[in-house]
Simulated assay, not measured.
Amino acid sequence: MKIELNGKRAIVTGSTAGIGYAIACGLARAGAEVTLTGRTQSRVDQAIDALRKETSAQISGVAADLGTRAGCDALIEARPETDILINNVGIFGPKDFFETDDATWQNFFDVNIMSGVRLSRHYAQGMKARDWGRIQFLSSESALNIPSEMVHYGMTKSAVQSISRGLAKVLAGTNVTVNAILPGPTRSEGVVDMLTAMADEQGESLADIEARFVAENRPSSIIQRLATPEEVANMCVYAASEQASATTGAALRVEGGIVDTMA
């Protein structure tokens, strides 16, 4: 199977590093015209330069804080239409439930949930009018295995999975598909930074910390390791393709078998 996205426009939010960057790279290599986003112009410019070295596709970027209505409006103004929308932007971080204040809950809600709601509400209308489109929400296995150390984060990932399913129903009978992607622990920039800090603090190698993290925190993992951003991106690129035309309203798991159910 050869995936070709020539002539398709894609927006990948939160794509200056990690999973988002890998998705942008995968879409670009398949021929899509890709718009990267990040909160600062310098990060966006660096990502554009890096991606242009890896692909000959047309690459551009928009700097905006998508955790705000103003930031989403700025992206929409700069890119009024798209064929593929990947709602990847998100934040995470462990915090004791009893010490997680209202402001933290609201921030996670605004960034992880409302960014995708606002952008999908706009871009899905154009996709419906053209009768073709792909929308994806980056959820997580934490949507199903709510982590006790990040209840506020798990809640947002459950929410975007619910929104994804509902929006797919809203667009029933069209050639616009909507899916949630559920990665597990992935060797993204944020996770590597967190594990590197743990390795430095405990005087162990990063490899040993990674292995212990999976064994202690995700013992049900079948692959017994962190996934790579590229492994997650492969699923996203497929779900964005013409070949995935009958895949919609789904929760597509790329979590290495952590969730111990077959459904």
Score class of each variant (00 low, 15 high):
Ser60Phe: 14
Asn107Cys: 01
Ala103Tyr: 15
Cys25Val: 14
Leu51Ser: 07
Ala78Pro: 00
Gly154Ile: 01
Asp45Tyr: 09
Asn145Cys: 11
Thr40Tyr: 14
Ile23Lys: 06
Arg69Thr: 03
Arg79Asp: 11
Ala50Asp: 10
Met150Lys: 12
Asn88Leu: 09
Val89Cys: 05
Ala63Phe: 10
Ile76Glu: 03
Gly38Gln: 04
Val62Arg: 07
Asp101Val: 00
Lys53Pro: 01
Gln41Trp: 12
His122Ser: 06
Asp101Gly: 09
Lys157Pro: 00
Ala70Phe: 09
Asp131Cys: 09
Asp83Trp: 10
Ala22Ile: 07
Thr37Met: 03
Val44Arg: 11
Asp83Ile: 00
Gln136Phe: 08
Asp96Asn: 13
Arg29Leu: 13
Ser42Leu: 11
Asp65Trp: 05
Asp83Phe: 09
Ala143Val: 01
Thr82Glu: 09
Glu81Met: 11
Trp105Cys: 05
Asp101Trp: 13
Glu77Val: 10
His122Arg: 03
Thr55Gln: 11
Gly67Ala: 02
Asp96Val: 08
Gly71Glu: 08
Phe98Gln: 08
Thr35Phe: 10
Leu119Asn: 02
Ile113Cys: 07
Gln106Ile: 12
Thr156Val: 07
Trp105Thr: 02
Asn107Phe: 15
Thr68Tyr: 12
Ile84Trp: 01
Glu149Cys: 12
Ala47Tyr: 01
Arg79Thr: 15
Ser42His: 07
His152Gly: 00
Ala70Gln: 12
Val111Cys: 07
Gln46Trp: 14
Gly38Phe: 03
Ile48Ala: 05
Arg118Ser: 05
Val117Pro: 12
Ile59Glu: 02
Asp49Ala: 15
Gly154Cys: 05
Ser115Trp: 01
Ile146Glu: 04
Asp101Pro: 02
Ser142Trp: 05
Ser148Leu: 06
Met127Thr: 01
Met114Leu: 15
Leu144Asp: 15
Ala57Gln: 03
Glu54Pro: 10
Ser142Ile: 00
Arg118Tyr: 07
Thr82Cys: 14
Leu27Met: 09
Arg130Leu: 02
Gly133His: 04
Tyr153Leu: 12
His152Ala: 04
Phe97Thr: 10
Ala30Pro: 08
Ile59Lys: 05
Leu27Cys: 09
Arg79Ala: 10
Gly31Lys: 14
Leu119His: 05
Gly126Ala: 04
Ala57Asn: 04
Ile76His: 07
Ala50Lys: 13
Gly133Gln: 10
Asp101Glu: 13
Asp49Asn: 07
Arg52Pro: 01
Leu85Tyr: 06
Lys95Arg: 15
Phe92Asp: 13
Met114Gly: 06
Ala64Ser: 03
Gln136Lys: 02
Glu149Gln: 11
Pro147Ile: 07
Gly31Val: 07
Glu99Ile: 13
Val117Leu: 13
Glu81Ile: 08
Lys53Met: 14
Tyr123Phe: 15
Gly38Arg: 03
Gly71Ala: 03
Gln41Cys: 08
Gly38Val: 02
Asn107Ser: 15
Met150Glu: 06
Ala129Ile: 14
Arg29Gly: 15
Val117His: 14
Ile146Asp: 06
Thr104Ala: 10
Ala63Ser: 12
Thr104Arg: 12
Leu51Cys: 10
His152Val: 04
Lys157Phe: 03
Ile23Phe: 01
Ala47Asn: 08
Trp132Gly: 03
Thr37Phe: 01
His122Val: 13
Arg134Glu: 00
Ile48Ser: 04
Arg121Gln: 11
Thr35Asn: 10
Ala30Lys: 04
Ser56Cys: 12
Glu33Ser: 11
Leu75Tyr: 00
Gly67Val: 01
Gln46Ser: 15
